[in-house]
């Protein structure tokens, strides 16, 4: 279970998150919706441990372990995975090399033995099958020259390979057409499990038609202003965020 309590975070002295509290039990998918500038991406970065953000108050715990004490790589080993809104291009580093380096770094931190080339390939074959990721794509440098859809599928592949406990999807639907969206959503849905939870961050309700949330939260001006069931997403789609912005002000 992921537990966020009264989380405050700044970037360069600007307050972005102003007291967020959230509990996501194992097996559940929660969605965070909100207008631009509400702090959605900040929340995802703070969860993953990006150092440009300063946490001034509050706590983040995964299964009772304090995440704020950990570096990004330690959080990854503890089970946090962030699927980036804009996956980063790494020229000159082959997709497979990157995946193998990441997986073995995590296994090492978890006290597990590193996978040899054969076992790694076997695992990768199994995970790429449903995502429509070709061997050719993995031979290319990480995300270099990839389309929007390919980049997001690649994020889901990394997620599947690294076997996290808690996944944050930051605007995974941005830049995707409907076909690409379905493939990505299917990949995420295939990973839903009793011992894994998800936080889906999105601006639009559309993604939630494909990845069905258990709970929806509205983030406005750095605070969660409303929580509810999946129906809340539809309500937002109709009414927009205006009323919440007023409430939060």
């Amino acid at each position: 279970m992921l537990k966020i309590n009264n989380l405050h975070a700044n970037i360069d002295d600007t307050k972005i998150l102003k007291g967020i509290s959230l509990e996501i039990p194992d097996g559940e998918v929660h969605a965070i919706m909100g207008p631009n500038g509400s702090g959605k991406s900040t929340l995802s970065y703070v969860l993953a441990g990006r150092e440009d953000y300063e946490v001034t108050e509050g706590s983040i715990a995964l299964d009772g372990i304090d995440m704020l004490e950990l570096s990004p790589e330690e959080r990854a080993a503890a089970g946090i995975f962030l699927a980036f809104q804009y996956p980063v291009e790494i020229p000159g580093v082959q997709g497979t090399t990157f995946l193998k380096t990441a997986l073995n770094a995590i296994r090492k931190q978890r006290g597990e033995s590193e996978l040899d080339a054969l076992d790694f390939l076997k695992l990768m074959k199994q995970k790429t099958k449903n995502l429509g990721i070709s061997d050719e794509m993995l031979k290319r440098a990480v995300n270099v020259g990839f389309s929007g859809g390919e980049k997001k599928r690649n994020e889901v592949l990394q997620m599947a390979m690294l076997d996290p406990k808690f996944c944050v999807l930051d605007e995974t639907d941005s830049g995707l057409d409907i076909d690409a969206l379905k493939i990505v959503a299917d990949g995420v849905n295939a990973m839903r499990a009793e011992n894994r939870s998800f936080l889906v961050i999105t601006h639009y309700q559309r993604l939630l038609d494909y990845i069905k949330p258990d709970k929806v939260h509205v983030l406005a001006k750095g605070r969660i202003v409303k929580s509810g069931g999946p129906e809340l997403a539809h309500e937002l789609e109709e009414k927009g965020y205006a009323e919440f912005l007023q409430e939060a002000a």
Binding site: S71, P72, E73, A76, F84, V88, I90, A102, Q109, L162
Partner: peptide
């Protein structure tokens, strides 16, 4: 950003820099 991307995948900082 690329450094954070690699570290968020579990790759230790030194190794991420080298990569």
């Amino acid at each position: 950003t690329p450094l954070f991307y690699l570290r968020s995948r579990g790759i230790p900082e030194d190794e991420a820099r080298a990569l």
